[in-house]
Design a protein around this nucleic acid. Sequence first.
DNA 1: TTTTGTCTTTCCGATACCAAAAAAACAGTG
DNA 2: CACTGTTTTTTTGGTATCGGAAAGACAAAA
Lengths: 313, 313
Amino acid sequence: MSRSAGAIDPSDVSATSRLRADLASRILNLLKDQKAEPGHRLVECELCRHFGVSRTPIRGALQLLANAGTVEARANRGYVLLHPVREAPEPPALTEQGEEDRELLVRIARARNSGLLPDECSQQEMVRHLDVTMATLLRVLRQLADLGLVERKPGKGWIFLPAIDSTRAQEESYAFRRVVEPAGLLAPTFELDWQWLERSRAQHQSFRKRRWRDTLAVEFFQMNADFHEQLARCSGNRYLLGAVQGQNRLRSFLNYHWVHGVPRVIASIEEHLAIMDALADGRNDRASQLMLDHLASSSRTFSPMAPSPKIPA
Amino acid sequence: MSRSAGAIDPSDVSATSRLRADLASRILNLLKDQKAEPGHRLVECELCRHFGVSRTPIRGALQLLANAGTVEARANRGYVLLHPVREAPEPPALTEQGEEDRELLVRIARARNSGLLPDECSQQEMVRHLDVTMATLLRVLRQLADLGLVERKPGKGWIFLPAIDSTRAQEESYAFRRVVEPAGLLAPTFELDWQWLERSRAQHQSFRKRRWRDTLAVEFFQMNADFHEQLARCSGNRYLLGAVQGQNRLRSFLNYHWVHGVPRVIASIEEHLAIMDALADGRNDRASQLMLDHLASSSRTFSPMAPSPKIPA
DNA sequence: TTTTGTCTTTCCGATACCAAAAAAACAGTG
DNA sequence: CACTGTTTTTTTGGTATCGGAAAGACAAAA
């Protein structure tokens, strides 16, 4: 079935590009950050500059949001926000960003856990086993390689590194972060981003008030990741930042299900707030200590005998 | 001019694959580590297992070494080492491993420094500017991206991150290492590799005795990198190891010219030896402190008045 | 029997090409 | 005049294909 050339067919959701879907979701986040009210006008050029892309994908993203009913298009006058942006920046059927990729990621994880996929394996075998195109497989393998979960063998083929989701790996991850993150707060080049601090504080506080629902898990995770990453950024050390970002990516891949349990979530938020308070007072030494404690208690939550966490459902 | 099919033409050096050239150089290193005497027999299968590849590329590598006159082929009896493996594991015309890639890397660096290549740039522009194929360019860009020197823009094009070889970046690198490496020695999972320790000690000691020649710079750098990487490996923390490896790669890319000066080299060796002594005694706390000092003095060599930041032990 | 030499099979990298997407230029509207 | 709608140009990602390279099997020699 050939798609008509020229005009974009907005109803064909499955065909939207990664970039557009991604932008759609980031636009929502932006609106939420800005606390945009219904009626808020979305100016294309601004969004362009903000995200560093051209108008074309921005328009695509807005189109997407229009289909989802979040915004409305007015002829010759651009897009306007319809409803207030609620919680859940995770747009259900919208984050098809790498829908294909994500799905493959999960399938690989499954195949590995069930032993269908051996430790060492050539690309083509995977293509046959998993029934995907070479292109998508390569994209995903590169992602996994970036995360350090898989490596190329010298000649040909790939090798899955052992114990991806093991308790051991989690403990190592926390141990690493206990080294890096508190040190970041003590760096002589540390410079607090006050604007961010205020926003994040508010976000944490509002989160604390809400009643917990499982749908909040993703949002919590993102807030959490953002917290740690921003602080690393303030350290003024690019390598330190890189290390934290890497850990975040790894976690976001492995951790959709590390559901901490509600009490731990609450405690986590309190600890974050305490750290921010200390930083606001210029007590970086104290903040550093609190960060260390925070990571220690977080890790303790899992370590006893983490239930065999096997990759997303 | 068409290459004859079938038989490998060993004289056509430019056509050897990356893997083979790479193996050739690694085989040399292996022989040196083993202190192999002339007459030493090179058994293909052993090499296969050691490097995790099949016999085909190993044979290619040996062929290469035979051409270079380092080993000799005896009919039906395999290859035999001719001369003792001297210093300089860097084989002059042999490390064509990524000769093309490496050259491009340099060209990119030049083009950037001279301002010919803008901060943001599409792939095709680069292809035109640098006159290379898309394939090689992408390979190299991916390498650079791994090192964090360049990033993809969301839509299209790439962006060069600022101040790649700046003093600032170096200082950050050392600051990061001062955090990570001493911590590695204190990890509860730390487990010393005695075999390696003895080898490395010997290597350091023999290096100390030699008179300095500029040609030793590369060898020194490799010994240095290996020292830090192995210790990180002993820490038993994969992320910590990854961080150190990343730093090493970055350094090996940027640092052809960071010539430390002879006195600093000597001092460095002494410091390494002291660290190894401490570890051998099980005094990891002391080793950790020494490592911190070591990194501090190394960094001081470049940035005369870097503040000495105090990281907690 | 172990190791090398030879041959076959399988896999991967590079190139060319095409369609989709992004950037950029242009035209139109409030 | 600022912004959106439309068109054009450029870049990019995906697929097919082909030659070279790696893996694996087999034969021959020490």
